[in-house]
Design a protein around this nucleic acid. Sequence first.
DNA 1: GCAAAACCGATTGGTTTGGTCTGGACTCAG
DNA 2: CTGAGTCCAGACCAAACCAATCGGTTTTGC
Lengths: 149, 149
Amino acid sequence: MLSSKAKYGLKAMVHLAEREGRGPVLIAEIAEAERIPKKFLDTILLELKNHGLLSSKKGKGGGYTLARPAERIMAGEVIRILDGPLAPVPCVSRSAYRPCPDCQDEATCAVRGVMQDVRDAMAAIVDNTTLIDMSKRRGRIEPVLMYDI
Amino acid sequence: MLSSKAKYGLKAMVHLAEREGRGPVLIAEIAEAERIPKKFLDTILLELKNHGLLSSKKGKGGGYTLARPAERIMAGEVIRILDGPLAPVPCVSRSAYRPCPDCQDEATCAVRGVMQDVRDAMAAIVDNTTLIDMSKRRGRIEPVLMYDI
DNA sequence: GCAAAACCGATTGGTTTGGTCTGGACTCAG
DNA sequence: CTGAGTCCAGACCAAACCAATCGGTTTTGC
């Protein structure tokens, strides 16, 4: 299950992708537009910033911007930062392998094989979906924004 | 993340698949062989029984047996019973659709599309993997996979 | 009747989730 | 310099969830 945190993070990132090139965006604006509790979003964006996905500027005229072009930021990066490894069991994680505490022999574990397949299938999707892909796929909120000055 | 409960349930089901046709198997035997806390396994097997995946016999000479041939029991069934729906967000679940409490319009949700793909990819695997598949695969060396993380 | 075994409801202790609170640090206009 | 506007940081908290256990009860075979 995707946590609220990761869900909010993805929504916020897509929001930023859609404002790309138009300067810093306020937390408050994102929170209102995407209906995310502002204080919670605070901590989420900070975490994404500390992992290098966002840049920020303080003070008047400040806000957040994507640290890289939106077409090079993958959904999988956001999810891993906010929710941890994708892998359903730690022993099949590539980014954060750990042996499962309860099985003494990975080779004879009946569960591992199928979970490895699941992990790979999930990774194949989220690591090939960019913020732009996500934005394009959603139904447009305000077409009026296209006629921006 | 797969819960311990589902993991134990899968292991127990594969264990039963490997004893297929040889009469009821004791909880205690499964618990010892698969290194699962017995009392916990108690509740897990009961739940699987109440959902129709297992049959049981009480008293001396009792135990659990698969309610259907192992080649017709899918990993996905076990996982859904013990862990609930696969879908990362409720609004893309086929078996248990619910609107996400926080988005007021599914059509404009940026997250829904990619999560739907993830759900479908997971389902394609776990709903096409039988207990027999899991049993056959265990003990073998996993082929090196090509996905990057 | 007695022991073996599954069945069942309640409870516990720990962890995670989904936040909030309070204050600090930095930036810029005037 | 000062203060309003921002982001930054950590401690804190209630509720939910998880993993497991407890203490029994029923059913069955002999």
